[in-house]
Amino acid sequence: MSTQTLPPPGEFKTTEEIRDARFAETLRRRRRLLLWWSAPVVLLAFLVALKFLSAVLINTAGISAYHNENHNTAATRFGHLEFFNVVEPWKPYFNAGTAVYAAGDFFGATVPLGMALDLVPKAPEEEPRGELECAVRTNYSLSLEGLGDEALMAEDPGTALDYYEQAQEMLADCVDGGGGGEEAEEADERQQESQEQAEEQQQQQQQDQQDGSQGEQEQEAPEGGADEDPTETDDGENGDPTETETETETDNGDNGDPTETETEEPGDPREEELEERNRQAQQDREEQEQQEGGGDGSGQNW
């Protein structure tokens, strides 16, 4: 036997009330399902909005650091935007390369600027280059110019000329009415002047090398066994070696006939008188021996 009792009076529901209650329960279930289905979309939208907001804040912070001449900090902040800016992906690389260039790292600036040049919107081949592409090309050209200036300061004009030519090729379609504007034209003029200085330095180095080679050849010529005139004397004058030796020997009195030398030079009067007296005494002694018929051969010499 069932113990369930009937509801009290006044709590009975009509058919319409029961239908409305069921319909309201169905709507509640649908709203819960829609909420669960839309949660990923809402979350994605929230993340996208957060991403754009973060990109704006980071970009603003990078620009502020750039204007305050904190170029390394600006380059770092602009580098973070490479993963955030999907609408204009070339801009983070362009800003980062510009900041690196302003910091003085010209070679490091060519890497992000090269990526920006690949991503920047380009005009069709039949049309001139656009302003956005020329802006990237101008800063890329300035980085190449900086590398050329460094090579020129290091007295390497060959490398400097190579960088200056690349810089001018980068701006070839952005000057003279192109989309580069005044900045591109000024950069092109400055690069032409720098190229002339590099050519002058290269010519000067070549001239110095030629002068140095000629000087070395002149110094090595006497040591290289050059033919010398055997008749040349110590004073560098050519002459007959026989005559030179004869004159030298005659002046020194080492060679020559002794008799002729004695005849030419005046003798001592006392020696001549002594010899004359000896000859006279010898003559007298010989005459006396002839008269006496002999003698012991002795005599006195004065």
Rank of each mutant, 00 (worst) to 15 (best):
T3K: 05
Q4M: 04
T5Y: 01
P8Y: 02
T14F: 06
E16R: 13
E17C: 11
I18R: 11
I18L: 10
R19E: 15
D20Y: 03
D20C: 10
A21L: 03
A21K: 10
A24T: 01
E25T: 07
L27R: 00
R31N: 01
R31E: 06
R32L: 04
L33F: 06
L35T: 09
W37Y: 11
S38G: 07
A39K: 05
V41G: 04
V41M: 00
L47Q: 01
V48W: 01
L50M: 11
F52N: 06
L53T: 05
S54G: 04
A55P: 04
T60Y: 08
I63W: 02
I63A: 10
F78T: 10
L81I: 05
E82K: 12
F84Y: 03
V87G: 14
P89L: 03
W90I: 10
K91N: 04
V100H: 00
A103G: 13
F107T: 01
M115G: 00
M115W: 02
M115D: 07
L117S: 07
L117A: 02
D118H: 07
E125T: 15
E125C: 08
E126V: 10
E126S: 14
E127W: 09
P128K: 06
G130A: 12
C134I: 09
C134W: 08
A135H: 01
V136A: 08
T138V: 09
L142Q: 11
S143H: 06
S143Y: 12
E145D: 00
E145C: 01
L152G: 12
A154L: 15
P157I: 12
G158R: 14
Y163V: 04
Q168W: 00
E169I: 02
E169S: 05
M170S: 01
M170Q: 08
L171G: 00
D173T: 10
C174D: 04
D176W: 06
G179V: 05
G180A: 08
G180V: 07
E182M: 10
E185L: 02
D188L: 07
D188S: 13
E193T: 09
E193W: 05
E196R: 15
Q197S: 11
Q202A: 14
Q202I: 11
Q203I: 12
Q204I: 14
Q205M: 15
Q206P: 03
Q207A: 15
Q210W: 01
Q214W: 06
Q214K: 06
E220R: 04
E223W: 03
G224A: 15
D229F: 15
P230H: 02
E232C: 15
G236Y: 09
G236W: 01
N238D: 13
D240L: 12
D240R: 05
E243R: 14
T246L: 15
T246K: 15
T246V: 15
E249N: 12
E249G: 13
N252G: 09
G253E: 11
D254K: 12
G256S: 08
G256L: 13
D257P: 10
D257T: 10
P258M: 09
T263P: 07
E265W: 12
L274C: 02
E275I: 03
E276M: 13
R279C: 04
Q283K: 05
D284R: 13
R285A: 05
E286D: 11
E287R: 01
G297R: 09
S298W: 05
N301S: 03
